[in-house]
Simulated assay, not measured.
Amino acid sequence: MKMMQKLLQKLKTATVIALISVFVLLSSGWTSTALAQNPMDELVTGYVSKVNVADLDRAIFFYHDLLGMEWDTSRDTSRWTQFFYPNLPGTKIGVYEGQPTGTGEAALTLVVKDIKEASYFLMSEGIEVSPIQDVGGGVLLAFFTDFDGNTLGLRQNGW
């Protein structure tokens, strides 16, 4: 049973890495004829990966001081902050102080220009999308899963 759990965790991690790689390629300007024909290609402007942590101050030390990421304090709340690398615009790691879950509950979130249009597109393709949530600060979120049950999100920024 432990071996199966380890295998499932490795598959989840590999899926997240593959998705991040694809979106990094897309955000760097790489496109193909097939991708350019998909409406999501025009809607996605970047992504935010969210991780839960037990201690926000310790996470700030890890991502800012140890990993050398820029600290985006423009969206800070008492339980949320985010980090980025300047050479990857539109790509951030959001850190949420809550029940720590490790990588099994990280959610890759696509930043889109119009969350309603992106939701409608996904639903037109047979993908269930959660109701759009206003989480404050002008940020709207909706969630969906890939074919393996991995959670992904849509995020429309208020600015």
Score class of each variant (00 low, 15 high):
K92N: 03
G126D: 05
K2L: 11
I20M: 13
G98V: 00
G46F: 02
G126W: 08
T77G: 02
L11Y: 03
Q37H: 06
G137A: 09
G94Q: 00
L152W: 01
D57M: 02
S49Y: 01
D72M: 01
S130L: 02
L25H: 15
A118E: 05
F61Q: 12
T77M: 01
P86F: 04
N87V: 14
S124Q: 05
E42G: 15
V44I: 15
V44T: 14
K113W: 01
A18Y: 14
N52P: 08
A142E: 13
E125D: 08
L108Y: 00
I115A: 07
S21D: 11
Q99V: 07
K2Q: 13
K113P: 04
M40G: 07
T31Q: 14
S119C: 11
M123S: 12
A118D: 01
L122V: 01
A14T: 10
L8I: 02
Y85R: 03
A107K: 08
Y120R: 08
T45C: 06
M40Q: 10
Q9V: 07
A107N: 06
D65C: 03
L8Q: 14
A106R: 12
A59D: 14
D114M: 06
S119I: 06
V135S: 05
N87R: 11
A14E: 14
M69A: 05
A118N: 04
G138N: 04
Y63R: 00
W159D: 13
V51S: 00
D146P: 08
L122R: 13
L66P: 11
G126S: 06
G29C: 02
S74D: 12
G102M: 07
N52L: 03
G46I: 10
V129I: 12
S78H: 11
I20W: 02
N38R: 09
K10L: 08
P131C: 04
L67A: 01
P100E: 12
Y120P: 01
S124W: 01
N150H: 13
Q133F: 07
M69E: 03
I132Q: 06
T151S: 01
A107Q: 09
V16C: 08
G138A: 06
K116V: 15
G104C: 05
I93P: 04
E125Q: 15
L26P: 05
Y85F: 15
G138I: 02
T45W: 02
F121A: 09
Y85L: 05
L7M: 13
D65G: 08
L141R: 14
Y96R: 11
L122T: 09
N157M: 12
V48W: 00
E70M: 02
K92T: 00
Y96P: 04
T145R: 13
H64V: 15
S32G: 09
L66W: 10
L11R: 15
D55G: 02
G137C: 03
M1R: 10
A107L: 04
V16L: 15
P39G: 09
G149F: 03
